[in-house]
Simulated assay, not measured.
Amino acid sequence: MKFSRFLLSVAATAALLAAPIAASAADLMAVITPSHDNPFFKSEAEGASLRAKELGYDVIVLVHDDDPNKQSELFDTAIARGAKAIILDNAGADATVAAVKKAKDAGIPSFLIDREIKETGIAVSQIVSNNYQGAQLGAEEFVRLMGEKGNYVELVGREADTNAGIRSSGYHDIIDQYPDMKMVAQQSANWSQTEAFEKMESILQANPDIKGVISGNDTMAMGAWAALKAAGRDDIIVVGFDGSNDVRDSILEGGIKATVLQPAYRQAQWAVEQAHDYLTKGSTGKDEKQLMDCVLITIDNAPKLETFALK
């Protein structure tokens, strides 16, 4: 009898020890983004992670560094860890399709933020900022600041990123309506501050008469502004896109003139909420493709901007 009770006690203890591990694996949510060196992506990760924990999930936060091969490996990690859902800011519109399909085949739904992929029906949600609408807002302000005339430069994001092309199109659909606005250089700086600094130095040497720079994101805008300041050309108008704290501070200091806020933090939280609805109710109740409108940030509302959200 005592031996039987001992066996029962051991079995009960083992079950108790195993229970937290099983619950953790069952309630895990994976958040995968580009490098947190960019505050935009860090904000996504923080927003998603916090909201998932509020909803009772354990979270693993992973970084793919815009490398599709690394992204695929991270999907393998999420699958192996038994994640219930994946929140993703992806590493390429084409290259990501296979990874999302792999997760779907493993029974793990994906909820995309910020960047779309080229196929529908394999991710549950694709929640992106209305980049075209936002770019038009930024371009309208840029034209106004330029006085509707003058030579300008455009810094474009990564060519493999759909958002880079959409933003550029939105800019030009406004700016090209003004015949006295002349683009003298258009170069990709791959969303990089360092690369934007280097590109801006070279462009400025070849085109000293430029009056403005419009950038596909705030990180490149900061690089361009640093190069312009180093050259003593803080008279040149710079407009960015994202709504980062760094550019907010520059606007308040009289440096960069404007940016366009895309609500990264809230967008990531929204994706987690939809993942939770899908897991608990079987549906998000929304279409796969969803757009969130952007907001123009100038000296007037910059004090209200904090971590890619307006207070």
Rank of each mutant, 00 (worst) to 15 (best):
L17K: 06
E46W: 01
S72K: 13
G138K: 12
M292R: 15
A160G: 03
V247R: 07
A275F: 10
E288K: 10
L145D: 00
G285C: 12
D58N: 09
I60T: 13
A231N: 07
Y152V: 12
S9H: 07
T194Y: 07
I122L: 14
Q205S: 15
E253C: 05
V100G: 10
I60E: 14
E201L: 06
Y57I: 00
I127Y: 03
L204P: 00
S110Y: 11
N301C: 08
L74P: 15
T13F: 10
F41Q: 08
M220S: 01
V128R: 13
H276K: 08
Q262A: 11
S72Y: 14
T162C: 06
N207S: 04
E119H: 08
Q269N: 07
D249F: 07
L74K: 14
K182H: 11
L145Y: 04
Q267M: 14
A19D: 05
D176F: 09
R158G: 12
G147K: 10
S24K: 15
A139P: 08
Q71P: 08
V31M: 09
A226H: 14
L50M: 07
K182F: 01
K102R: 11
A302F: 11
P179D: 15
I237H: 01
I166R: 03
I86Y: 11
Q177M: 10
D114K: 07
E73F: 02
Q136M: 10
G212M: 04
E159N: 10
I175D: 04
A264C: 00
A99F: 13
E46N: 15
A275V: 01
R158E: 15
A196T: 12
V239E: 13
L204F: 01
A268Q: 03
A275T: 06
A95W: 04
V97F: 11
Q269H: 03
S168F: 02
Y132S: 11
N130T: 04
E253N: 13
Q133R: 05
T96C: 10
F308T: 00
A271N: 05
E288Q: 12
V272W: 04
K289C: 12
I214F: 06
S49L: 09
A15W: 09
Q71R: 01
A93V: 11
M292N: 14
M183V: 13
E141P: 04
E195L: 13
G121N: 04
L55T: 08
D287A: 13
P34Y: 02
V10Q: 08
V124T: 13
I32Y: 06
S168P: 01
L155F: 06
T219K: 14
R5F: 08
L252N: 07
L279E: 11
G134T: 00
S4N: 14
P179G: 10
Q193C: 02
M29N: 09
R266S: 12
I251M: 00
A206D: 13
M292P: 00
A185L: 08
K104P: 02
Q274R: 15
A80Q: 12
L16N: 09
N130A: 12
A25G: 03
D67N: 09
D94K: 10
K53W: 04
I175R: 01
K149P: 03
P303Y: 15
M220H: 02
A139D: 06
I87F: 13
M183T: 10
G56I: 02
S35G: 10
I87Y: 04
D242L: 06
L74D: 02
I32A: 01
L112A: 04
A224R: 03
G147I: 08
I299M: 12
K102G: 07
W225Q: 13
